[in-house]
Design a protein around this nucleic acid. Structure first.
Lengths: 342, 342
DNA sequence: CGTCCAATTGACAACGAAGGACAATTTCGC
DNA sequence: GCGAAATTGTCCTTCGTTGTCAATTGGACG
């Protein structure tokens, strides 16, 4: 039993080093005006006692918890991973820590979210869609004076900090590409309508249709929820219609991959018989075969920037209001001319 | 500007409700012997002031932070997601929160991990591989008296709490299946050797080889790091050898999917020309086409159980020492007899 | 060698809530 | 209306660290 050193306090260290507790505090906070001799004494004593300042006590007096929350509602795993990666990359090395707060249903009980944030004493919050667009949440946080950074918001863009991309332009771009390949019978799989990005992307698709003299095709639209399964089911329905699409625009990669699976099961080859494109360029897009043609949404970068802005705000600097990140069309292997023309 | 209510304290609530601060405390901590009337008064005042107990102050006096850390070292995204999901599911509704602590390199600086945990004042820690097997980390946590639960440890099984599965048996099982299909030239893609699971699974493969009179095949072994890319690269090398395998045992799903991609690129059909099996049954296994034959490792359940044990320990109950979860062979579409026999 | 200013330290009261030990006050059974 | 039990209130500590301001020390300089 060599184990069992009890937690030591700044007072213990002070006693051992024969200085005042205040001096210990000063050394640990790198305050100016400290003689090298004092610093050495304190550090030696601290090391001997294996002392770590108690963040709870610090937090109490400084009115900070050094906790940042990441709020999201069960989006695709790959999206969450990217979000976290971006946030953690920025947080790394600093004193702030990341708390993950997946919430059941943002839309149903928005005030619960605010209450959660308050009772956890978070210093700041990163809001992923669809929480980033919920007015009650924004108001609640504003009211509680809790700084927040929003990822990909689509409304009330003047509120809080945000990082975003141009969903409309991106969607238009990938739709243009598919049309350019010769497709005329194009189906759309929408994501969860509570995500504002869903309607934005639809607008982009429509713009491309319009610009190329195609009808809006209300028949060939199915609604999913951004999950693999929903893309799979939607595609099964689409491919069993009398008017069969030669291309499918899925509003994210998971649904696109679901579409590919369904197509394969029904005997269609991708892309020879059916073009499938996604949106996001999440990990899965690079990993499936054939590799998915999609739009690269810089989720990690957006999360990193959002975190950066939040930290700057917490530090008292002016972080600016909104940063737009560039998207990018990524042409891989799932888009080809329609069978009739090939 | 309706915004800006300042944070209120228990004393504010007491004043407004015209009761003693002690009563406020009693109500919020659900102590017995409180009349419904008092409770109502306090709750109403608290609501009006939008009062939330300050967790920092509570934590200070109770010596708890209500923070649980999840420590992992950049494993596959799907694995992380499952871990988090399991932990969060158990934590949901309670007062404990999850802090994610991905660490650069557990092996290089194990004491940094301990120091991180101490300075963040975590109440308990969940250790994913390979941290769950590092003796210095275990000792450090033991020393600091911080409870921890280990996921899938392979050594020092008597230390701390743990949840695990039988990697050897599982690996043997899937190898037996492949051999049973008629394969005789079987390649292995190992995961990162710092993960103890890697060698355990290899032992299982070898047991199956031995039992069926196959040589250990040291030539057809490649080492990856559990990532898609490493599986992809390893497979490119394997398939360009003079002695070409008809089946590949990958030590996790990501590498297996990488193997499938590489095979496809080289013109091999899976499973007609090449059988590929994985390990873990992470999300990706269900999502790729053809769907991956693999071993289901109950990561989410293990994480959930680990969290449960940790919470029980924190509550002062006896959580027991170790729980073994059952694995399961999942036969899907990527394993078939070798071409010569089909 | 004393004086005065700056650089260093120290003393002490917050911070917000909980816990313990009792005292004071209802409330209720009968 | 009495005694006992159930509620509430008082008061004082504790938790570990920082802010504020006063005290001390060390030098430069005349």
């Amino acid at each position: 039993m060599a184990h069992g050193e009890k937690r030591s306090t700044s007072i213990d260290v002070a006693k051992l080093a024969q200085v005042s507790p205040k001096s210990v505090s000063r050394v640990f906070n790198n305050e100016p005006h400290i003689s090298p001799a004092l610093r050495k004494k304190v550090l030696r004593a601290a090391k001997e006692l294996n002392y770590h300042p108690n963040v709870l006590a610090q937090g109490l007096v400084r009115r900070q918890s050094y906790l940042i929350g990441l709020i999201y509602e069960k989006p695709s795993p790959s999206y969450v991973v990217e979000l976290q990666r971006g946030a953690l990359e920025r947080l790394h090395g600093g004193r702030y820590r990341l708390i993950v707060l997946p919430v059941e249903s943002v839309m149903d009980r928005p005030l619960e979210v605010v209450s959660l944030v308050r009772s956890a004493a978070l210093d700041g919050v990163i809001l992923a869609p669809p929480a980033s667009d919920h007015p009650d949440i924004l108001d609640g946080l504003l009211d509680a004076r809790i700084p927040f950074a929003r990822i990909a918001p689509q409304s009330k863009l003047d509120v809080g900090l945000s990082t975003a991309m141009d969903d409309v332009a991106a969607a238009r771009e990938i739709a243009e590409h598919v049309i350019g390949l010769g497709h005329r019978t194009i189906a759309i799989i929408l994501g969860d309508p509570v995500h504002a990005a869903s309607s934005q992307r639809l607008i982009g698709y429509r713009q491309a249709f319009d610009a190329n003299g195609l009808p809006p095709l209300p028949d060939l639209v199915e609604t999913g929820d951004f999950s693999f399964e929903s893309g799979y089911e939607a595609t099964k329905r689409l491919l069993s219609r009398k008017l069969r699409p030669t291309a499918i625009l899925a509003q994210n990669d998971d649904m696109a991959v679901g579409a590919m699976s369904a197509a394969r099961e029904l005997g269609f080859d991708v892309p020879a018989d059916l073009t499938v494109v996604g949106f996001d360029d999440s990990e899965i897009a690079r990993v499936v075969w054939p590799r998915l043609t999609t739009i690269r949404q810089p989720v990690m970068e957006m999360a990193k920037t959002a975190t950066d802005m939040l930290l700057r705000e917490l530090a008292g600097d002016d972080p600016g209001g909104m940063v737009i990140h560039a998207h990018q069309f990524v042409d891989r292997l799932t888009a080809a001319p329609p069978p009739a023309l090939s």
